[in-house]
């Protein structure tokens, strides 16, 4: 399912919701989630799960092709932890 499919299904299911408004809402939701994570905020959506940003330390890595040592700077990575309800539903 793509974002487009999600928009279509949402417009089908919510009474009097146009495709255009559904698209604007879906975009607003994921944009505000991106902004929250960019600000280092944690997102908790009950029933779905939580999104958080993890800090990765700087490390010495290797170029897998040449074997050369390379410095990998510290960085932040987005992380999703599945909620209990969804975890159980998927495994059913």
């Amino acid at each position: 399912m793509t974002k487009r499919d999600l928009v279509e299904k949402l417009a089908e299911r919510v009474k009097n919701l146009s495709q255009k408004d559904a698209e604007m809402i879906v975009n607003t939701i994921f944009e505000s989630m991106t902004e929250a994570l960019a600000a280092g905020d944690r997102i908790e959506i009950r029933g779905l799960g939580s999104f958080l940003v993890k800090q990765r330390r700087a490390r010495e890595g290797r170029n897998p092709r040449s074997g050369d040592k390379v410095f990998v700077a510290q960085k932040k990575v987005p992380f999703f932890k599945v909620g209990k309800e969804l975890k159980e539903r998927v495994d059913k």
Binding site: M1, L6, K9, L10, R13, V14, L17, A22, I25, V26, I29, I45, G47, L48, L86, R89, V90
Partner: peptide
């Protein structure tokens, strides 16, 4: 609308 969108996502998964 938010609840419906989340439900659609959960159903899909």
């Amino acid at each position: 609308i938010v609840e419906t969108m989340l439900e659609i996502m959960k159903e899909s998964l």
